[in-house]
Nucleic acid binder design. Sequence first.
DNA 1: TCTGGGGTCCTAGGACCC
DNA 2: TCTGGGGTCCTAGGACCC
Length: 422
Amino acid sequence: MFALSDCNNFYCSCERIFQPSLNGKPVIVLSNNDGCAIARSEEAKALGIAMGAPAFMIRDIIEKNNVQVFSSNYVLYGDISRRVTEVYRKYAKEIEVYSIDESFLYLFDYPGMNYDSYATEIRNTVKQWIGMPVCIGVASSKTLAKAANKYAKKMTGSKGVFVIDSEEKRKSVLEFLKVGDVWGIGSRYAKWLIGHNITDAWQLSRSNEEWIRQKMGVVGVRLVKELNGISCIDLEEVAPTKKVICTSRSFGTLITQKQELAEAISTFATRCGEKLRKEKICTSAITVFIYSNVFRVKDTQYHGSVTIPFNRPTNYTGDLISYALKGLNAIYKPGINYHKAGIMCLDMVPENAIQETFFAETQRDSDKGRKVTQVLDQINVLMGSDKVRFAAAGYSKQWRLKNEKLSPCYTTNISQIPVVHL
DNA sequence: TCTGGGGTCCTAGGACCC
DNA sequence: TCTGGGGTCCTAGGACCC
């Protein structure tokens, strides 16, 4: 049996662990730049704050109801996520970390196993050890486990656990689940299915396979089989190496000057380098892009992007910055209010399987680069991000993210932990 | 005034190989 | 009247996930 364990309102719950007085109160967490509400406590949802609602459009609701607002703190959430995952490992043969707040568990099975009490124990342990509330769905396929999880969240009150271990239970879960809420059915397919009078997951599970194949391909066929309890999607215990790595940001303020863009681009190249080295891969080409703000309809709109192939794959920050700045040169247009930029790394190869070029000196250069970044990474892990960096990344950072409501990194930065007077 | 940031998979069609 | 059989690679577009 598969279990899907999902943290409740994860980012909000992370903030509440360290401020328990916020329990029972409306809490929201905003996206980067304090733009949109991307996590809402139950109380905030009840006030009508929608997922993705722009902060400036819900200001009234926030002020009237004293909603507690946080900027997103991914360092904190990432660390809490890691701790929750550690608890799961005690309870499962294999686990797949599916996202920052969700994991699939392939459960142990004993003769006479009681999945309901087992899942309840996992839930209680995560709550007691980490302080994180989770809900758990258990079933014979991943798609059904996702469905059971949604049912557990809405229909079981404070129990928070549901096991599909009979046809009656499968039917009641699928009848409860709207077709658009099925894992793998997005807005486009939902619209089409509803147009053909398939409105819930039960009806979808009973639909004709060939008809589904024509419109939705093999993905759709797999999905229907999964709803019928036939497992077609395996657990992915080890995450496959990434095919694309992207670092992009909107700016806290609009940028027009090339020099400022260059600093931002260099900073993104630095982040990409860190990500590549962590995955032990190199990239053979990058795409650099700079965008104006589509919401400012009176501004001249511009989407510039260019892809630059390399002679030799690299994950050395110095290389990435110099290629990225060449890219910027090619696409920069003056007189535009730039709002967002980014770098995408493509065509990955493993770090230890690089095809060398014909010219031997690049080998020597790359050894030097590798040693430099090793030291750089070590210092920055120990002393804090960006303590030592390339000058191209600049110092002013006018464009940096707006995050006015940032909480401390309670679990990863000792010096930020506030003193509590009892 | 103010609107996020990452990813993946599948398919069809064109171009090419022997 | 009749025109083989078996492949790969690449790209763009469309769908999806958190």
